[in-house]
Design a protein around this nucleic acid. Structure first.
Lengths: 196, 196
DNA sequence: TTGAAACTAACTAACAGTAGTTAGTTTTTT
DNA sequence: AAAAAACTAACTACTGTTAGTTAGTTTCAA
């Protein structure tokens, strides 16, 4: 039998199942079955079901954090910064879609400290993102808006990408990032004259 | 004992629990416990756990459909139409937050025909929304964009509201609708000169 | 107006199934 | 021969749900 890192295979299979059926609806027996093995055998490679979720979440969270840190290191122009932050976010999401989907949708099934730790990291990430918006406003290149509101609106559009992105679809991650950036920076209105 | 529609109380309690812990993580015993009763007693009032979810989903879906139908009846200007469709959507979401949250997040736990029926209705709703975008483009008031892409981006921002809206927070549903409409129609950019 | 019938809403006991996981053992690979 | 990775058996906890019953209340005919 091929043996190229069984642990990785287990993660891959588990995440693919969880993406479709959800964390709670995917049993250890389902995961094992998809790998032609018995459930208890999984425990030779992983320590618990929750650990599958936890390791996935920290991995994705780490990728997000790395991305935003790089953006803040390299770029100075707020518009460029925001564009690159969006690009980085989309790249993380689309690079491993199963893991990202599970991260976005199932992190709340973590319990206690694990869950709390993740919330802290999410808040930190959002703060870094919001910093870019604040910079843009103070430099007068973004409209003054409720920071928190704008951030949530932006992140929601980004995260929703896991719902519909398909690697074999007609938009590449790069094109998605471009379109989203354009949409967020310019909006829908052709003549930019909409008044409340 | 007070008897103001026990069935409604059960729905209310169940949805509040499901919003926090998820559909699968909320057992009939949890629901009963929160009402100081035993799980089997619930079945004097409701027919099944899935029915709790199903009735909730159809109720919310119906409210969405009613909203978009009215908008299409009353308004002609695409910008106004979009604004009112957004307003209607936000009103539905915020009017019963527990139910909306459960609808947005847990509908996939429905099985078979129930699930299929809901997907059909969602697609119809999205089509009606997209129709507004198409009208705006053909009349030259919206930028030409990938219809489907714009729609998903817009709806994701709207639906994310269930994540952070609090009835006792500093934004009213009406203010949220205004801000979202402005954001979607005008974007972030002050000078509207962002180039890809 | 009284008494029977029906309804409401709760209960306990229990079932059949599934969950994640552990222990101990056997097979396979190196 | 040692180590890795699979197996079977089993456990405990919990799942949604059904069955059968009971107490209290409402409806309604005599």
């Amino acid at each position: 039998m091929a043996r190229p890192n069984r642990k990785e295979e287990i993660f891959k299979t588990a995440l693919a199942l969880m993406r479709v059926h959800g964390y709670r609806n995917t049993s250890m027996r389902d995961i094992a079955g998809a790998l032609n093995m018995e459930a208890p055998s999984l425990y030779n490679h992983i320590s618990s079901k929750e650990d599958l979720l936890w390791q996935t979440c920290t991995r994705i969270a780490g990728a997000f954090e790395k991305g935003i840190a790089e953006v803040n290191d390299i770029y100075f122009n707020p518009q460029e910064k925001l564009g690159m932050a969006i690009r980085s976010h989309i790249e993380v999401l689309t690079h491993d879609l199963d893991a990202s989907y599970v991260f976005v949708h199932e992190w709340r099934h973590l319990q206690g400290e694990l869950r709390d730790a993740l919330i802290v990291r999410r808040d930190r990430y959002e703060a870094a993102f919001r910093e870019i918006l604040a910079q843009g406003e103070s430099e007068g290149v973004f409209v003054d808006s409720d920071n928190k509101f704008a951030l949530l609106t932006i992140l929601s559009s980004l995260n929703w990408v896991v719902e519909w992105y398909r690697p074999d679809g007609d938009m590449s991650p790069s094109q998605i990032a471009n379109q989203l950036t354009e949409f967020i920076l310019n909006g829908l209105n052709k003549h930019h004259n909409y008044v409340r």
